[in-house]
Design a protein around this nucleic acid. Structure first.
Lengths: 143, 143
DNA sequence: TATTGTTATACTCTATAACTATA
DNA sequence: TATAGTTATAGAGTATAACAATA
């Protein structure tokens, strides 16, 4: 196998491991059944403050149609509020409700635990190195 | 956002970028419509030689039921042959056909291109470092 | 009793395209 | 004409559990 193919399978495997590690934790927390991407959307909103659907999509690398659908679900579940931007009526203004804030805190806790478990083999320096390399990779403009 | 949450989102984002970069390339190549996981299964078989369904599953971090279903698809498409292990009749013995070998070569090519594009920001040293860190993370026994 | 693989189900995620409305 | 968001659809991936055959 080429180095590139090995690397590609490693990345996929890491993601899989991450999911299967996070899944049981998140399932216990995910009372509103919003799913993994729903949870990530909440986290992004909590970080960025009032934001648009498009921004969420580009942050998570998901299509706007998926974001739109999930946002409506989150609204229905009472985790998120949507209003229209005063200046540009095409844009949404999305923010968390009280209930949404509580959910984010819970998801964040699960995420931290899962990450610590996954990266358990790395010492602090290596973890920082890994994060830096990821940042460098993601700094690239291409989708 | 905590360091762990950032890292988790980065990993997810990397995976997404990988998929969306690989997708258009793979689609052109995937004449038999076996999908991305189908392609990965072929690559694993080509690497490990005659193997079992369980081994493929654990290598890719996928459930045996998914592997079983996809293997049957691959057999139907004429890319893979299944036979029963002589010593333990519960086990399969899976190998690629000629057609399967050609497909693997094509998928590998796409995988190499995609990986090079994704990691374009890293120089050789950094790419090696990244791969080493991934290996270290994946060396952990936990699922 | 444990292991290998099969089958079925229900749900989530994803890509795509056609659509409305605003700019 | 371009942008933000919505809606609908079809296909792929996933978790789970119940099952048969073999060890």
């Amino acid at each position: 196998m080429t180095d590139e193919a090995i690397l590609a399978l490693q990345i996929d495997r890491l993601m899989r491991r991450f999911h299967s590690n996070l899944h049981p934790r998140a399932e216990r927390i995910d009372k509103e059944k919003i799913g993994p991407v729903g949870g990530m959307i909440l986290i992004v909103i909590s970080e960025s403050g009032p934001t648009t659907a498009q921004l969420i999509g580009s942050t998570l690398g998901r299509d706007k149609s998926q974001v739109s659908r999930l946002l409506n679900l989150l609204v229905k579940k009472g985790l998120v509020e949507k209003s229209t931007n005063d200046i540009d009526a095409r844009r949404l203004e999305i923010r968390l409700t009280e209930k949404g804030l509580l959910q984010v805190a819970a998801f964040n806790g699960a995420l931290i635990e899962a990450t610590k478990t996954i990266l358990g083999n790395l010492n602090k320096d290596e973890a920082r190195q890994f994060s830096n390399l990821l940042s460098k990779i993601m700094a690239q403009h291409s989708v």
